[in-house]
Amino acid sequence: MSLLRKLKIQIRKVEERDRDYWVDMSLRKLREGKVRYYRVRDELTGKWLFKICRDDEMQRVIVKALKCPAGGGFVQLEGRTMLFQKGILEGYYYDVISLSYMDEEERLRRNVLNDMDEVPEVIKENFKVMEYEEATGKKIVGKRLVVLCEENDEKSMILLFLIQRAWPISKIPPEIGMKASDLLRLIKELEKAKVDEIYQAAERQFKLGKENTDMLLNLLEKEGTIQRLKDYIKTKD
């Protein structure tokens, strides 16, 4: 099973331009190259639209979130980018690992990681993680960790954006959110079901407690895939 299927993420390319322009803010320059657009449905966070800007001359790829799901944290990710650059390992680009968080005033922030224990397990289990100097051959003050991605694997770059930028600010833990489609399938099988019946079946089949089931029901209702009818819940046709 592929990683995307395992994580229940769908990524579909919807447009490709062999030549287009964008502003690279890190270089403060107008750049030219190939551009691709991808629609994404992430079980945990919702629907996204990404723009991939490939700068072959500078050997770098920019992942930019054009449209994000609703929510204070996600809205602040709109227009944000993630940069992948060529290092010294042939066939790979690297990204400096940093995780999003919300500060006391609900403003989006990022924390650059320097401790392997802080790196999400899903990254450590599925990607190469190493120190900045090892990946680039350059020395910097302090210790930073990077994650490597195959240079042409744009879907994995988008996935790394979601894991580092979106998942940390989701109100639903990833291991719970990935069961949303299972719960939706259960509701379809039950047809018109009482809420208590859903609680019991979710606990029995997916080991989901009432609180986690409620979180997923709210997520599915927000997405418009289920509807509540007094004491009943059913899927939308």
Rank of each mutant, 00 (worst) to 15 (best):
Q76S: 07
I226D: 04
E223K: 15
E191L: 06
G137D: 02
I176S: 01
L190G: 10
E16H: 10
R54N: 09
V147F: 02
Q200L: 05
G209F: 11
A70D: 04
K194N: 10
F127M: 06
W167A: 07
Q85P: 01
W48H: 11
V75H: 07
T235N: 03
P174Y: 04
E203I: 12
I233A: 08
K47Q: 11
S26H: 07
E134T: 08
G46M: 05
K155Y: 05
V147D: 05
K210I: 15
E118Y: 06
I176K: 02
E150V: 12
G209A: 15
Q200N: 07
K143G: 10
K67D: 13
I123Q: 12
G224T: 09
G142T: 07
R109M: 15
I198D: 03
L208H: 08
L186M: 09
V146C: 05
N152F: 06
F50S: 06
E105S: 13
I172A: 01
L216F: 00
L7F: 06
V35W: 02
Y92E: 05
M130E: 11
K188P: 00
R54V: 06
V23S: 11
I158K: 14
P69K: 14
K222Y: 00
K13M: 10
L113D: 02
E131G: 03
D214L: 15
D237E: 11
D42H: 09
L66I: 14
K6T: 14
I169H: 00
N126S: 08
E134S: 08
L186D: 01
D196R: 14
F50C: 03
G71K: 14
M157Y: 03
Y199T: 11
M130L: 14
S2R: 12
G224W: 00
N114G: 12
E104A: 13
K155D: 02
D55Q: 09
E223P: 03
M130S: 10
P168M: 04
I52W: 04
K124H: 09
R17C: 12
K86M: 11
S98E: 13
V147E: 06
I11D: 11
F84A: 14
K192S: 10
A180T: 12
R80G: 10
M178T: 11
L27N: 08
N126F: 04
I140P: 00
A193S: 12
L44H: 02
D103R: 07
K171S: 11
E118K: 12
I233Y: 13
Y132Q: 05
E104T: 09
D18V: 14
L30H: 05
M1E: 15
W167Y: 08
K51F: 04
E175L: 13
R17T: 14
V195H: 05
V40S: 01
G224D: 00
L229R: 15
D20M: 07
Y93G: 04
E189Q: 09
T81S: 01
G33F: 01
Q164L: 13
L145R: 05
L99M: 12
I172Y: 00
D56M: 14
K139N: 03
F50D: 03
K188D: 04
K138R: 11
M178C: 03
M58W: 01
D214H: 08
E221C: 05
E15C: 11
L49W: 03
Q59D: 07
F161S: 09
K124V: 15
S156G: 08
C68H: 10
V23W: 06
R36P: 01
K210V: 12
V96P: 01
I158A: 05
L220T: 07
I158R: 11
